[in-house]
Structure formats: structure tokens, C-alpha cells
């Protein structure tokens, strides 16, 4: 439109924040609260949204998505709750071990890939472990707007039941908690069977739980569009590989513990991204040529696209083989 079109920068808009509280909730989970450094209120957000937290870990920049779990109606803080993953790539360990009250940090504007379907007459939430976080914001939203909901929350043990006490105290009739170590499990079939027309189901938790809910709901005749899920994938380590980026005219090496997207960024390539977890589709990249095998891990491309060898999601997927050339 204008004489000099502006080029959009990769990722969502950023907000400069200060860590205002670090609250350990149990041996594995800690809540981090942020206030804005410019003193302005935070933008309102829709329940289910996440923010990408930028971590300066030595020479390395980590960008990890976390669900916003604070009350969407409270514009004075944003909060995330992070489960420490001792086997992970280090983002959660960095937050747990390095981040202190008063630290400056950068986070992105909220991005929602797991919204409530506002047509829903009732919302049934199924949480597994740390998958509770988006539901905390959804519950706060529905309580304010007067929406019908219930929560079924599966945790490993009482000790690791993040926010269990608070939830059961505030909403004794709507919150149902199941402890693995007491052999309690969500009775999903009965639960799905008894719901009124217009109910939507949301699941957030480990991949096995998400697949189980989708499959069970489908088998009970639930329409796909009434069953919602969110699973952020963390990029998995793998053998190092080499990639030719033809638009940028460089060849880069992807290390064992970094993703293809991170390797591009390290080499100064401004590649698009939003969720960094294989869900949003923003980083989709065309393959020019390849000789080898793709390790596709995203939720974005369908099976045919995965099989075609024509596309890759560099935030979570890798490559094993002789040569890979991308249109980036």
C-alpha cells in the first residue's frame, strides 16, 4: 500500500516486565509473576492464551511458551506456573534456578491457540498435571461472566497437586480431583455421556491423555469441534545436522540440543514464529530439496504433508540424512 512496506518482525509484540514474585507451590512447580516496567496496565487477554518468555541464559537465548494462568480480568500482573523438567532442554531449570524477584525479563503479547468456544453452554475441563494452567484463567473468566463449567483434574499425588487446595476451596462443587497414587482416574466415558447439548470439552495435559480424550469423545459421537486440546511440544534433542537456507544464502549447523528454528535465529535469520511448540503454523517452511528422513513432530501439518517431504516446522521437527535445502 505505501511506498515502503514495513516488514513484520518474527514473533508477537513484546512487553518489558519485572519479576514481581517467585512462589514455589510444591517440589516441582513454581509460579512467576510479572509487572510491567513502563507502569502501564497489561493488555487484557483471552483465557487460554500463552506468552513466550525470553530467557537470557548466558550466551544462549531461550524462548519458551507458557500459558497465562492469572485472572484475565486483572491487568496489574501476568503470571505463569512452570513445572521443573530436570530432563528438559533447560528453560524450566533456568526459570527455577536463575530467576529472582526484581529481574528484568521480556515476554510477548498474549497469543491464544486454545480459546474457549464462547458458544458453549457448558465447558468441561480435563487437566493432567501442569496442564491445569490455562484452565485457571478460563475458570476466572467464566466465574466473572457467569458461564457454566466443571473441572476434572488428574494429578500424580496430593503433594504435587498444583492449585488443588485453592480450587477445591473456592469451587467445591465444580472441581473434581483424581490422584494417581490413590488409583483414582477420571471416569471419562460416564462423564461424556451425561453432558447437556452444547457442552464443549477441553483437555490439556500429556499427549497420551489428549489422544485418549479425543478418541473416547469421537467413539461416543462427540463432534470434533466440541473437543479442544492444547499440547505444547518442547523441541527434542537429536543428532546434529546441516541445512542450506537458500534465500538467506547460508549453510547452518543444527546442534544436538537446539531446534532448527533456534539454529536459524542463532545465525541471524529472522524466521517467523509464534508458539515455538508445533501448534500455530507460523514457522511453516518449504523444502526445496532433501536427501534423508524428516523427523516431523508438529501438530500443524497433516499426515500427507508430512509424507510429502515438501514442508517442515522448524520449531520442533528435525532431519536425519545427507542434505536438506529450505526456502528460507
Amino acid at each position: 500500500m505505501s511506498a515502503a512496506p514495513q516488514k513484520a518482525k518474527a514473533g508477537a509484540e513484546k512487553i518489558e516486565v519485572t519479576v514481581s514474585a517467585v512462589v514455589p507451590l510444591n517440589p516441582l512447580v513454581t509460579r512467576f509473576e510479572f509487572t510491567r516496567r513502563d507502569g502501564q496496565p497489561f493488555p487484557p487477554f483471552s483465557a487460554g492464551a500463552h506468552t513466550v518468555v525470553e530467557m537470557r541464559d548466558g550466551a544462549r537465548t531461550r524462548l519458551n511458551p507458557y500459558s497465562l494462568m492469572s485472572d484475565p480480568g486483572d491487568s496489574s500482573i501476568y503470571a505463569i506456573s512452570v513445572r521443573r523438567d530436570d530432563q528438559g532442554r533447560g528453560g524450566s531449570l533456568f526459570l527455577h534456578n536463575q530467576v529472582k524477584v526484581g529481574d528484568p525479563m521480556t515476554i510477548t503479547y498474549p497469543v491464544n491457540l486454545f480459546p474457549l468456544d464462547l458458544r458453549g453452554r457448558k465447558h468441561v475441563f480435563l487437566a493432567g498435571g501442569i496442564g491445569i494452567t490455562p484452565f485457571l484463567a478460563m475458570i476466572a473468566h467464566l466465574e466473572r461472566m457467569g458461564g457454566a463449567w466443571e473441572l476434572h483434574y488428574s494429578c500424580r499425588s496430593k503433594e504435587l497437586g498444583t492449585y488443588v487446595d485453592e480450587l477445591t476451596y473456592k469451587h467445591p462443587n465444580k472441581v473434581h480431583v483424581y490422584f494417581d497414587d490413590q488409583d483414582q482416574a477420571i471416569g471419562l466415558e460416564d462423564l461424556l455421556d451425561g453432558q447437556p447439548l452444547g457442552t464443549h470439552v477441553y483437555v490439556c495435559g500429556p499427549k497420551g491423555m489428549i489422544d485418549w480424550v479425543h478418541a473416547t469423545a469421537a467413539a461416543h459421537g462427540w463432534p470434533d469441534e466440541n473437543v479442544h486440546s492444547e499440547e505444547f511440544l518442547a523441541p527434542q534433542p537429536g543428532k546434529p545436522f546441516e541445512v542450506r537456507l537458500c534465500k538467506s544464502d547460508i549453510t547452518i549447523q543444527v546442534g544436538e540440543h537446539e531446534s532448527l528454528l533456534e539454529a536459524m535465529e542463532r545465525c541471524g535469520v529472522d524466521a517467523p514464529f509464534l508458539c515455538r511448540g508445533g501448534a500455530c503454523g507460523q514457522c511453516e517452511t518449504d523444502v526445496v530439496s532433501s536427501d534423508g528422513d524428516f523427523v516431523h513432530r508438529d501438530h500443524w501439518l497433516d499426515d500427507d504433508e508430512h509424507a510429502s517431504g515438501k514442508k517442515i516446522m522448524p520449531c520442533v521437527s528435525r532431519f536425519v540424512g545427507k542434505s536438506l535445502v529450505l526456502d528460507r
Binding site: M1, A8, A12, E13, P43, Y109, P110, V111, Q282
Partner: peptide
């Protein structure tokens, strides 16, 4: 459609 689905909070777009 793909472009519009990805329009994010804080980053509005325009066209004529």
C-alpha cells in the same frame, strides 16, 4: 485466511 488467523494482539494490519 491464513494471514488473518495469525493476526495477533498488539499487531493490527490493514489493506485497501
Amino acid at each position: 485466511l491464513k494471514f488473518l488467523l495469525n493476526i495477533q494482539q498488539g499487531a493490527p494490519a490493514r489493506r485497501l
